[in-house]
Simulated scan of single mutants.
Amino acid sequence: MPANRVAENVFGTMGTICWTVQLTPQVWKSYRDKSTQGLSPWLVLCWGISAGFFGVYAIVQNLNIPLIIQPQLFGLLCMVSWGQCQYYGSPRPKRHSLLLGLAALLLLGGVEAAMVFSIRPSMNPRAIMFFGIFSSVLLALGLLAQYYEIYQRKEVVGVSILFMTIDLMGGVFSDLSLVFKPKFDGIAAISYSIVIAMDAGVILSALLLNPRARRRRRRVEDGEIRGVENRSLS
């Protein structure tokens, strides 16, 4: 397909918009429920670290501006969500959780900046490839942690499906942006495609497992009610 800078930037911008707001429903859900039960803290932590590695890759590879901004915003939102996991999922006071999240964010940003300045002079292709590949590995590991959480609970709890849907669309638009680049970036495409496939798995799990879990709970409740009625009659 011929290169098209306009299409590249339009799709890249749409992907950036999705990945700017995709964690907002999750952050709001956790805040509203005052709970992150069912949301794996490893998911958002691994994704936040992944954003730092992919940020290095995007900058040194000179991807389009939206795709460079994308991991920075993504990492910020991931760390906010991780901070919520520390606060709602542990007895830590709010101030300590806030400081922990802020420290993790500053450390991630500092490491990313240091790596960019150390790699740019040499543009070592192996080093650049490592950052792109390791970013994909961290994305997959984070989602595997969430899959384990789903496996334990036999349903999708605590995860905003709207978050997963917007995240999936961000991957689709970002992949399309790469199609119109003068030179297709396979590593970036793998990173985005992993997100698409594994987000789809979480959404499908919610569609299949959550109705079954609701039916199980109803059967248990009906059994308890019948047990109370029988005891009252005897």
Rank of each mutant, 00 (worst) to 15 (best):
K154W: 12
Y147K: 14
Q146K: 10
L39W: 00
Q72K: 05
K154G: 13
W82Y: 15
I119P: 04
F131N: 03
S81D: 07
S118M: 14
I119C: 08
I128F: 12
R32Q: 13
I161Q: 08
D185R: 09
V228P: 12
V27I: 13
C18L: 04
V179S: 03
F173R: 02
W42G: 00
G89I: 11
G75E: 02
I150K: 06
R218H: 11
E149D: 15
I68T: 04
F53V: 00
G101Q: 05
F130Q: 11
S232T: 14
W47G: 00
A103N: 10
T36F: 02
A189G: 12
M169T: 08
L209N: 07
A189T: 12
A114T: 06
L108N: 08
A213P: 06
A200N: 10
S205Q: 07
L209H: 06
P91W: 09
G15R: 00
R126L: 14
G171Q: 03
R219S: 11
R214N: 10
D199M: 09
N210F: 08
E8A: 09
M164A: 09
L99N: 07
L73H: 02
V228G: 14
S97Y: 07
R219P: 07
Q152G: 15
S234W: 15
Q152P: 13
F131L: 11
Y57N: 00
S118Y: 12
W82N: 03
N4F: 04
R95Y: 13
A104F: 04
L63P: 01
V111Q: 04
S177E: 04
C78H: 03
G75W: 00
E149Q: 15
G101W: 01
N62R: 13
D33M: 04
S193P: 08
M169H: 06
A189Y: 13
L176T: 09
R120G: 11
V116R: 06
N9P: 01
M115A: 13
H96P: 08
D222M: 12
L67T: 03
M129L: 15
A145T: 12
E112F: 02
L76H: 01
V111D: 04
W47C: 00
D33G: 04
C18F: 02
F184H: 12
L204H: 11
I187N: 06
V116E: 05
A104E: 05
L108E: 07
G55M: 02
V44I: 10
N9M: 03
G101Y: 01
I225L: 15
W82T: 09
E229N: 15
G89M: 07
V202K: 01
L23N: 01
P125S: 12
Q26T: 00
E149L: 09
I196C: 14
L100I: 12
K154P: 12
W47R: 01
T20Y: 05
L176F: 10
A140G: 14
Q70L: 08
D199I: 05
G132L: 10
F131K: 02
A127R: 10
R32L: 07
V60S: 04
G55Y: 00
R218F: 08
S122I: 13
M129Y: 15
S193C: 13
Y147Q: 15
S160H: 03
G142S: 13
Y57F: 06
L98H: 11
G101M: 06
P125W: 09
